[in-house]
Every structure is written in structure tokens, then in C-alpha cells.
Amino acid sequence: MRAFFAKQPQLPPPLLDAPWREINWNDKQSALQHVNDYEPYIEDRQLRILLYGPAGAGKSSFINSVKSVLEGRMSTLALVDNISHDSFTKEYTTYKVKKENPSNFYPFVFNDIMGITQNKGIVVDDVKLALMGRVKDDYVFNPEHKLSEGDQYYNTTVNPNDKVHVLVCVIPADTVSQMREEVTKKTLEIRRAASDLGIPQVAIITKIDKACPEIKKDLKNVYKSVYLKEMMEQLSVNVGIPINCIFPVRNYFEEIDFNDDVDSLTLRALRHIIDFGEDFMNHKMSQSEGSHK
């Protein structure tokens, strides 16, 4: 007697046969050298990188990871909270990265801002002001009120180094599919404001080892993971950032020693962020020169 069984849908393999994005895991030094050699084409310029995203996404951890890799020692300057579900970052702070000696710094800085949450979190208008260089260091974000002209932390005199040159959206891979509507709405609003200013935008996907067991086993599976590729595609659809501007990273958070694979992903993302920002600065300069002819 012949038995009939409904054909079960075939589940996608956990790993692709080949990575869909190439990365040379044995060539960390060339990426590090690229960052070390970077000097803005425009003299006395400083590249400003603004990080934003949901509370707990790993913005501060990414800054710490970059500082750790470039300074050669584990950094915890940007404070991180592993307990609270609200935003731990309350103040607008500029983070510099030391280069070679304590008095010399890389020609780029990071700004970390209060996280986006469903009900509280950062006021979108404050992010817009930060993009334009209107927010001074140590400004304490207030979820109820936006910064306004006349406030002591409102920057009335803006120079080119105050303005943001790259906007980085930081999203945790383990919660991409659960992004609340209000968080997505605020993210899109911030993206539109940056687009109006012509500011390039990228996304960093964090906590990739928590989202995919295969990546937790071996970080080199990052671009073979079917699940992570789908998450990146979903993020691209949700917030409109192209796939080639989305970079997965695995921040340092429990280690006391360095890992070359972690460093390679961090440096790869940083290299692209720097390149995008440099292109933007040069473009703005050429526009300014053209307007004076």
C-alpha cells in the first residue's frame, strides 16, 4: 500500500557554501595601516562620526572597540550598561582616539547620543541639531524637551569641524525583526534629516554572535550565515540603507585579550566609514570653492 506524505518545505541551510562578501581574515594589518595613514585632504579638518540607534544597540561598545583596536589596549571610556533597558548615554560627548602618544589623536572623532526608545529616548530634533553642529559637548539630553537657541549648550557659532560628516545607524542583529514602529519611524526621520544635508549614512549591525549560533561558533561564518544575510536585507528594507553600506561587527564586551577576527570586522567597518566621510568633506569643499568662483 502506497503512503502519501505532504512534502515538507526545505529549510534554508544555516551556512552558505561560500561567503557572499569577501574579507581577508589574514590581512588585518593592511586595514589597520589604512586607518593609521588617514589624513583629511583638507588641512586642519576633523572627521566627525555620529552614532545613533535603539537603546542598548551597542553604540558605546563600538566606540570602545575602535579605541581598543587602535590604541592597543582595552578601552571602557564610553560607558556601557548591561542591565538597564533604557538609554545609558545621557550626555552629548565627543570621543577622541589616541595615536602613538597621549598628545596625538586620530583625525576623526565619535559622538554617542541617547538611544531611540519606544516612548522616551532622544528627541529627533536634537539629533538634527547635532548633525548641523549646533550641540555642544556635555549637553544632557532631555526626552521631554529639545535643545533650543539661547540654551547654554546651543552652539551659535558653527565651524566645519563641529558638523557631522558620517551618520552611523547602530542596530543589534538579535532584535532587527522586532524593531518597534516608533523606533523605525524615528530612525527614518533622522535619516531624512541627514539626507537633506547630504551626509553619508551607513549601518553597523552588532551582537551578531547572539543572533546566529554559527557565528558564535566561528566569527569567520559572518558572511556565510543565511540568517544574518536575511537580517541585513530586512534592515535595508526597513530603514532604506543599501546592503553595501551595512557592516556587521562583534564588539568587545567580555574579553580582556584581543581577537584578530573581531578586529578585522571592526577595522573593515571603520575604513568604509572614514572613506565615506572623507568623500563628503571633499565634496562640500568643492561645492564651496565652486560657489566663490
Rank of each mutant, 00 (worst) to 15 (best):
P200N: 06
R271L: 10
V237Y: 14
K163N: 06
S288L: 14
G290T: 06
G133H: 12
L15D: 03
S195D: 13
K96C: 04
Y106P: 00
S75R: 15
D209M: 01
Q46E: 15
V170N: 07
F141N: 03
R45Q: 13
S177A: 08
V170C: 10
A130D: 05
D260Q: 12
D162E: 13
S264L: 12
D275S: 08
K163P: 02
Q287M: 15
V123L: 06
I23M: 13
L16T: 05
S65L: 05
N238H: 13
H283D: 14
N82W: 09
K120L: 11
L219Y: 08
Q178M: 08
S236N: 04
L11F: 07
S264N: 12
I116C: 05
S75V: 14
E91N: 12
Q287I: 08
E278M: 07
V170I: 05
S286Y: 08
A269R: 02
D209G: 04
L70E: 05
N155L: 09
V166S: 06
E233S: 08
Q152A: 14
E43H: 10
V168L: 01
H292S: 12
D275A: 14
S68W: 00
L15S: 10
K293S: 14
E230D: 15
N142G: 09
Q118S: 10
K120A: 13
S236M: 10
Q152W: 08
A55R: 02
N282Y: 07
K120T: 08
F105I: 15
